[in-house]
Design a protein around this nucleic acid. Structure first.
Lengths: 146, 146
DNA sequence: CTAGGTGCAAAGCATTTGCACCAAG
DNA sequence: CTTGGTGCAAATGCTTTGCACCTAG
């Protein structure tokens, strides 16, 4: 089931909540995080949804432009996508430089948001730049790779 | 001229400071920032250094693994590289989502470092993760694109 | 000499595009 | 019936690799 809110977003962009698009959103709704296009395609096949890989790419791009998904890049040579949670203004990752494992974290988010908000205001003024979002990545070794 | 410190790093990795490698480092030393492989290649041609593009890729990778360069990704489909400044433990960017322009900034770095250091310690303990570095990206519209 | 480096061309991958066909408003 | 959406295959673009040749220690 695709949330009413999403249908509204689709219509506000003059786009249709097609079966392919809903199926893709369902994959992310089921708890899968930061998936690559190929991984989304794989999940769809596993659920017996036949969607071409080109359609997956086109819709991941569309959903990102609509603000439903967010592109993230972990330096493994392909784009990954994750659901933008309604209450969330940003989202951060620990990336293992050895095995590529990615951990999402939310520690100290309040403090972090407070600090980054202040920094954003400063940067906007100084560089005449309108900041829309930000991403923070930590790189290192996960417990298995140390 | 390639700094003595770099030669030492090369030798500690059992690699040679070849003309190609020195020429690549010189491009970055001349103030060029976050260049793609193709852009490095172009700069070399402009300086009449004949280095194959494959060698550029191989050496950008090598220099990154040696910690002399850092890979950065601005979401434009290719990797970029920049010099790691000796005194610098991290480096941040404002990326224009419209034209792709990238601004480096250094405001509030002390406060930022203090905050991020604290966050890193917390994350390391909680996730048993050994953090080596981090990157912060702000996305938005530059003054020309607003 | 001998391992490390390089250039060139070919190969590899992730992603995009052209086009004919399908489907919803 | 007309615009938007899709599948398929071909094309693209960045990056890597195989291999023969070159070069510094």
């Amino acid at each position: 089931m695709v949330k009413r809110k999403w249908k509204e977003i689709f219509h506000s962009f003059d786009k249709r909540p097609t079966p392919s698009r809903c199926a893709i959103l369902e994959v992310f709704e089921e708890g899968k995080r930061h998936l690559s296009a190929e991984e989304v395609y794989e999940q769809l096949r596993r659920k017996n949804k036949k969607v071409g890989i080109a359609t997956v790419y086109r819709n991941l791009d569309l959903l990102s432009r609509m603000g439903i998904l967010r592109r993230v890049n972990f330096g493994d040579g392909r784009e990954h996508y994750e659901l933008v949670q309604p209450s969330e203004t940003h989202h951060h990752h620990l990336v293992c430089v050895n095995c590529g494992r990615v951990i999402d974290y939310s520690e100290l988010m309040d403090e972090e948001r407070e600090f980054l908000d202040r920094l954003e205001k400063e940067l906007e003024k100084k560089h005449n730049f309108r900041i829309q979002s930000h991403q923070v990545y930590f790189y290192g070794l996960c417990k298995n790779c140390q």
